[in-house]
Amino acid sequence: MESSVLLFYVLAALILISAVGVISAANAIYSALCLVTTMFGVAGVFLNLGAPFIGAVQVIVYAGAVVVLFVMIVMLLDLKKKERPLQSRSVSSGIKVAIPALLVGIVVAAAQMSIDFATQEGAAQSGGFLVSTKELAQLLLSKYLFAFEAISLLILVVIVGAISLARSPGGTHVGPQ
């Protein structure tokens, strides 16, 4: 078996186990830490597919910033151990897992049957580094230019939103500016 295919299976197993850990861990901190491992797995899959830049960006933004925010929130809110949502060996927990999984599976199968992946241009092959970062940059700045500029506006909107949310009573600064 080719090594990149083997690596994919290892990474997929890591992602799935961590994802199950996210939803079934008792302590909220363990959930957040399993999320970090899931993000690592996804970054590894990107690296395996030949997109090292996206893999590194995944770690920087998700594992290094978003999940840190989650961890900080969990720590400061001091969430008590809730009763476990998935009691082991009970019918209700089996149903709680099986029905959403079935729904997701139906959606994904429908999507796969409607898009013909084999003829997509630039379909990713496993192995070496297929798309160099320079080609990615060329595409980003020419074909997707509008999206690129729109992202800066979107981030501005989020900044304004975050600050106005923090301005509610008890926030960083009370009263008008």
């Binding site: 090292p52 830049f53 770690v59 920087i60 594992a63 290094g64």
Partner: peptide, 9 residues
């Protein structure tokens, strides 16, 4: 970018 990712961890 990889070294920055590792440092942010």
């Amino acid at each position: 970018v990889y070294v920055l990712a590792a440092s942010s961890l």
